[in-house]
Write a protein that binds this DNA or RNA. Structure first.
Lengths: 199, 199
DNA sequence: TATTGATAAATGAACATTCAATTATTACAG
DNA sequence: CTGTAATAATTGAATGTTCATTTATCAATA
């Protein structure tokens, strides 16, 4: 920061506003939808002037993309928590599966935002590659499981689709109603996922 | 039609325009996204005046909803094809699974539209109930499988999530790259789905 | 005082929808 | 068959609104 003279007398940007804009973006998109979410509505929700928003983000596109990346970063941090290569493959899968389940239940708004964004044209190939990088440990785990003949020898994407996508459905009350799962049901659900991919 | 005098000289609405508007809506939403899709752009794609669109649909909302229902109707018709209660449960599942797979591969645009719509606030509870009705035979099949102890005794939504959602992921090139499946891979994938739910 | 953060107000473009006027289709009288 | 009246389909243009973004100005800080 102090490398450049012109930065010395810079007034600091408000961290709270950054956070408020993030939360507001997710909230507004969830409440009125991606299509109806305007910069001014998001700014109002964050109790900030639309012009101020432009000191934090150079465009609406930039706001949405950085919100998406933020959601995905939090997701990957949460999901990868507790991975331990010394434990059996199945235990690691179970850990990831429960982390993912809890995240989706705790932050359903993040998920709905994420779904809306990823199905929009903002989500281009290079952005998706950046995100895939974050989830690399899971891909590695799958490959390790295949090598050790613990899980079926199939494409990594295929294994992922069968193990992790159903979680998203289950945790989404909009897609899966009448389903307020008990601990036992969550456990049974993981067993389904594991049965699908185990050798 | 001839019951009422005032209907005698009615000019008929153009079936082709109805269809053109449907295709245009799907196409425009796929190309520029749900958020950027305007009535005038859809009308232009359908080679129709924006004003004409309003003789077929009373609002933009109506246009989008009926497009969604049309997609879902085609999907349910295709997916339920060939269900035969006299055959084993697994064969019926296999049939549905392949129907679904082929539909998603053949009409990826319908799927992307569907995903964008269903994550939007247009998709309310009562609309979703109407759609669930269309897929009732699948719910029945699952319940029959549970009764006959062929599949695990779990919530219908849970079974559905594990069997059918991975298909959507697999068939979506945006979500599952480097995966141009051979017949054998498709077969293996169904085996995964079945392994998850079978008793 | 110099510089940046913050904002209200302004801008022009695009939006959904309406409307007045025109065009196309039909029934039927001749 | 042909012409005509009736009516709905169609449309370009206009409506007022909302949009994303910029600009000019002020406030805060070093």
């Amino acid at each position: 920061m102090n490398d450049h003279l012109f930065m010395i007398v810079m007034r600091t940007k408000d961290e709270e506003k950054q956070e408020a804009l993030f939360e507001a973006t997710v909230k507004v998109v969830n409440e009125i939808g991606f299509a109806s979410s305007s910069v001014s509505k998001i700014a109002k929700e964050a109790r900030v002037s639309p012009a101020t928003l432009y000191t934090y983000h150079k465009s609406k596109k930039d706001l949405l993309i950085s919100t998406y990346l933020n959601v995905k970063r939090q997701l990957s941090d949460t999901v990868m928590e507790g991975i331990d290569e010394t434990l059996p493959i199945r235990d690691n899968f179970r850990q990831i599966w429960f982390n993912l389940f809890q995240f989706t239940v705790k932050y359903p708004d993040y998920f709905q935002f994420s779904e809306q964004f990823s199905n929009s044209p903002y989500n281009d190939r290079s952005l998706q590659n950046d995100i895939d990088q974050k989830f690399m440990p899971i891909a590695k785990l799958i490959r390790r499981g295949i090598e050790r003949k613990v899980i079926k020898n199939l494409e990594v994407d295929l294994i992922s689709a069968f193990v992790f996508y159903p979680v998203i459905i289950l945790a989404n009350p909009r897609l899966c109603r009448n389903f307020d799962p008990t601990d036992e049901q969550i456990d049974q659900s993981f067993q389904l996922a594991w049965d699908a991919i185990k050798l």
